[in-house]
């Protein structure tokens, strides 16, 4: 069968697509590059939107439903844009034993978000992680990519308030 497809061009002029293209090219635009490509999309754009899913599907020649199935199977991927700041609470066993649940409930009370949600004003995304591997420092929380150990509910809320007040407006 002939397979001389024309490679689709990126959805926009945005330079970040070059990173995505580079990943796909590195893997010879083979279908098995799907997960690696989605990683690059999420790293570059923060999340996977429909446009990105369609583009990756077209270049790698993978059915749309397959791409969607993969994107929703792996919890590391998100289809929604993240908030300005993200707070990841580790809920691995060691952190759980040392009170991760109370941290989550304190945030829920103060900011009105559950893990996987973003505050209405888009300031804060709360996530939970299955073990960051920082068990020796339990309970651990990641603030915008920075792992901080031995946390308490009040210390976490202090950090979060720092974000929301520094940015001018309060939370919703």
């Amino acid at each position: 069968m002939r397979t001389d497809f024309v490679n689709p061009s990126p959805p926009s002029e945005d330079k970040r697509w070059r990173l995505v293209d580079a990943t796909m090219r590195r893997h010879g635009r083979q279908s098995h590059a799907l997960i690696e490509s989605l990683h690059t999309v999420q790293e570059s754009f923060g999340y996977l939107d429909e446009e990105a899913l369609r583009y990756v599907a077209a270049v790698l020649r993978v059915p749309l439903s397959h791409v969607y199935g993969v994107a929703t199977f792996y919890h590391f991927f998100t289809l929604k844009p993240p908030g300005e700041h993200t707070c990841v609470v580790c809920t691995g066993t060691a952190c759980y034993i040392k009170g991760a649940a109370s941290i989550l409930s304190a945030i829920a009370q103060a900011e009105g978000v559950k893990p996987g949600e973003t505050t209405k004003d888009g300031k804060l995304s709360l996530l939970s992680a299955r073990c960051l591997g920082s068990c020796g420092l339990a309970p651990a929380v990641v603030f915008d990519g920075e792992v901080v150990g031995k946390m308490t509910p009040s210390l976490v809320l202090e950090r979060i308030r720092g974000w929301t007040s520094r940015d001018g407006r309060g939370t919703a």
Partner: peptide, 20 residues
């Protein structure tokens, strides 16, 4: 055609067409 696939996982898995 590969119109169908499965999205999500575990108890939340569901069959979908295209991009859900």
């Amino acid at each position: 055609a590969h119109t169908w696939d499965v999205m999500g996982r575990g108890i939340n898995a569901r069959v979908i067409t295209d991009l859900n």
